[in-house]
Simulated assay, not measured.
Amino acid sequence: MFDLSNRLVTLRKKERKTQQDVAHYVGVSTAAVSKWETNQSYPDLSVLPKLATYFNCSIDDLLGYEPQMSKEHIQQLYMRLANDFQQKPFDEVYAEIQNIIKEYYACFPLLMQISVLLLNYTQLAGERTKEILSLAESLCIRIQQQSSDLRLLQLCRSLQAQIALIKNEPQQVIALFGEEVEAYAGNDLVLASAYLQLQQGDKAEETYQISLFQKIVSNVFILANYLQMQLQDEERFQETVERGFGLIRLFQLDTLHINSCISMYIGAAQGYTIQGRMDAAFEALQRYLHVIEQTPFPITLHGDDYFNKVDEWLLRELDLGQTMPRDEASLRQSLLDIVEKNPMFEPLKQDARYQVLVSNLTHMLGVNA
């Protein structure tokens, strides 16, 4: 939004100039300047450069126009829109998002988070799902074409791949990432060593911690997804489960990173159900229930006593900081739905243990089954 009238008043008073001074410099009447400052009229476009020169500012600053949004503002806007999706009609929130995109079309961190937001709430889009995915994809393409931020470009490519999977376009994913897994280069270790040579021990420790934290969490997610490849081999499936559970236990991920634990426990429970190993399925679901029971809401990304550098890094590096990318109400509902509405658990639903588990989960989350 433009705020020329207030900006003119502010700049003029800051420079201790009168309306007559401004009028004389730009070649208009004092009455014209008065009308600009009271929002009764606007200066001609040819006058704007003269005004900007007079006040030694950019035209954007003169107009009160901010094409970029701060990280804090992006976080606040994201969470407000996420909450609006739960409380207002989808089309109303979507219309506001479209206006925000037009106003901040050059603010690439914001466009990135808008893409994430749209992806997280496509389940509400109904018949407009294809349109929503296309918009999110187009924003990613714009970022790739216009931004020089390497971190943002990497995140953008990952998001594009997720969109391609939702659209059932696996070949697009391969085109984005290539056909082979890249060899681990160890850049994080080299960077930490560089900090040590510079005698910047804190930065070296942070680099080691962040690298370790991300790789452990990533490996649990990988193991959870790898389970689906082992369904026909119960012995290998069991070994994969034990390794995943072992990582969770070793690094106390039950309290450190709930999402990775959910992925592992639900993946294990689904696999056991398919294999007909119902007792093991319920044991995995009980682990899931235990995670929910001890998780404080609202859920945040965070470190712990061991990973004591993670919190500061999250706040500094992530556009959403420690905030989860979904509002609390829909997150609570999804934590119930992943069990209660999961078609993979259909064989369990006549078992009293399942009914008790869903009842307990519903109570813990404070939502309706």
Rank of each mutant, 00 (worst) to 15 (best):
Y94Q: 04
D61I: 08
P67G: 08
I59C: 06
Y94M: 11
C57H: 01
Y94W: 10
N56T: 01
R80Y: 12
N83A: 13
I59R: 04
L81A: 04
G64N: 04
M79F: 13
G64T: 09
M69Y: 05
I59W: 00
D91Q: 14
M69I: 13
Y65T: 01
L77S: 13
Y65A: 07
N83M: 12
I59S: 02
P89A: 10
D60W: 02
K71I: 15
S58E: 03
D91A: 14
D91C: 11
L62E: 03
A82S: 13
D84M: 10
S58P: 01
N83E: 15
K88A: 12
R80C: 06
E66N: 10
G64V: 12
M79Y: 08
L81T: 03
S70P: 02
L77M: 14
L77W: 13
L77I: 13
Y78T: 15
Q68H: 00
F85T: 07
A82F: 04
E92G: 03
D84E: 12
I74D: 06
Y78K: 14
D60E: 12
M69T: 14
P89C: 10
D91R: 14
D84L: 07
L77D: 09
E66V: 06
Q87K: 15
Q86W: 11
D91T: 13
G64K: 08
N83F: 09
M69Q: 09
H73A: 12
L63V: 10
E92H: 04
K88H: 08
I59L: 09
E92C: 08
F85C: 03
M69N: 09
L81I: 15
H73Q: 13
N56K: 13
V93F: 07
I74L: 10
D84F: 01
A82I: 11
S70R: 01
S58A: 05
N83L: 12
M69W: 07
Q76C: 00
Q75K: 14
V93S: 03
K71T: 14
D61Y: 15
P89W: 06
P67W: 03
N83P: 00
P89F: 06
A82R: 01
D60V: 11
D91Y: 11
S58G: 05
M79A: 09
Y65W: 14
M69A: 03
L81M: 11
A82E: 09
L81G: 02
Q87S: 14
V93T: 09
S58C: 04
Y94L: 11
C57T: 09
A82T: 12
P67K: 07
I74N: 00
E92D: 04
L77E: 12
D60C: 11
F85P: 05
L63D: 00
Q75H: 03
S58M: 03
Q76G: 07
Q86I: 11
N56R: 12
H73I: 10
Q86N: 15
A82C: 09
L63N: 04
G64P: 01
M79H: 15
Y94T: 02
E92Q: 06
G64L: 10
K88V: 04
G64W: 08
L63R: 04
F85K: 01
P89S: 11
D60I: 13
E66R: 08
K71S: 08
G64F: 12
M79T: 10
S70F: 05
S70C: 07
